[in-house]
Design a protein around this nucleic acid. Structure first.
Lengths: 205, 205
DNA sequence: CTGTGTGAAGGCTTTCACAGCC
DNA sequence: GGCTGTGAAAGCCTTCACACAG
């Protein structure tokens, strides 16, 4: 384990972990950097350099022991704990993601509750409780929630973000088409599906 | 306009365009690089360098004319808007995204149709037609579709991808937790919500 | 001989510094 | 004076080359 791991490397370490989950079950107990790199879509040298941040794992001439590798990745990423997450905004995309809840659950994340200014929007095919924003503070404190998925419209995203920060949220997965202004120490990942599509369309003539 | 625009820059150009849409309406007819950069969450120098790829737009001492800037961005990015897109896989996430259809529409993308091996899964609150995979080839040819959103399970993602490529799809927005093997010239953007969440959880202690 | 670990080299992106135009 | 455009410098990330362990 080393001091500081670059952001891009952290991202790929997660990726390697998923690749092992989905492919690594069958087959022998070891993988070579070449094999795993191919699955993950990176160069073998990149993979080895990345894994270097998790300490000495591989055996020269053999490869990496899958079980040990997964354990070290989990340790390094701190994945062992299943983080509860709250989802803010139950409009279009928000309720779409709530219906995807079981997809998140499969990958180890639980959406503990959803919040909306108008919580009566609840739909029968959604199992996650939908609460009023006024209950947010109490819920976050009671459950020790540190992460949020933000799905409100762009116009109210910063406002909602501020409320989250006031209540101690430290990481936000932001689907609103707005760059959030946050103090240092708060982690924000942006997912903008429209930009992804637009970006793709640039690369086709 | 310059020869080649780096991938990251293309991504940010889309971002600037969105920022102008959402913020630029009101206010005067010009923006400074400082103002726009703040909204987009980048440094002013970065913004200016990026815009340099669209040719000379700004007026020194004044800033950028919003209308001209948007026009140049649109030109540079191509007729990116209003591309018809097909969505493959109407399971959990796929149908979630179909319900978000109007969100895409607002941003200028139309999901022309969805395809699934078992198309009878259709739900009453989804307006996009859901067709059988056997109809895919004809539909793509008839509508001139070049882009696809892939939402099938990881185990069948590569197979579905191959079918798409055979039918002339050139760009894929991939939600399956698998790195797709594609020939050069095909553009793939990966969105993996589980990895985004895991990544965030690393950055909170 | 096979395949990892890693310093060094290379390449790409961002930032700086300042010249140039309004 | 204000703000853009851009070559040069810095920083970061990836790739190479090869030492070294099994």
């Amino acid at each position: 384990m080393k001091e500081f791991i670059p952001r891009k490397t952290v991202y790929r370490l997660s990726l390697y972990n998923r690749c092992l989950e989905h492919f690594g079950q069958n087959g022998s107990g070891t993988v070579s950097s070449e094999t795993l790199a191919k699955i993950a879509g990176v160069k073998p040298t990149q993979l080895r350099k990345d894994l270097g941040y998790c300490g000495q794992i591989g055996k020269r001439g053999l490869g990496y022991d899958v079980a040990l590798l997964r354990q070290r990745l989990a340790e390094t990423l701190g994945t062992s704990r299943l983080q509860p997450v709250v989802l803010i905004g139950t409009g279009n995309l928000g309720s779409a993601l709530l219906r995807y809840q079981e997809g998140f659950a499969k990958e180890g994340f639980e959406i503990a509750a959803a919040f909306d200014a108008l919580p009566q929007k609840r739909s029968p095919d959604i199992s996650v409780p939908i609460l009023a924003m006024t209950e947010l503070a109490g819920f976050i404190a009671a459950r020790g929630v540190k992460m949020a998925i933000l799905c409100v419209p762009g116009t109210s995203a910063q406002e909602a973000c501020n409320v989250l920060l006031q209540n101690g949220i430290q990481a936000i997965l932001n689907f609103a088409p707005v760059i959030l202004q946050t103090p240092a120490g708060v982690a924000v990942n942006n997912v903008n599906l429209a930009i992804e599509l637009e970006n793709l369309s640039y690369f086709i003539q």
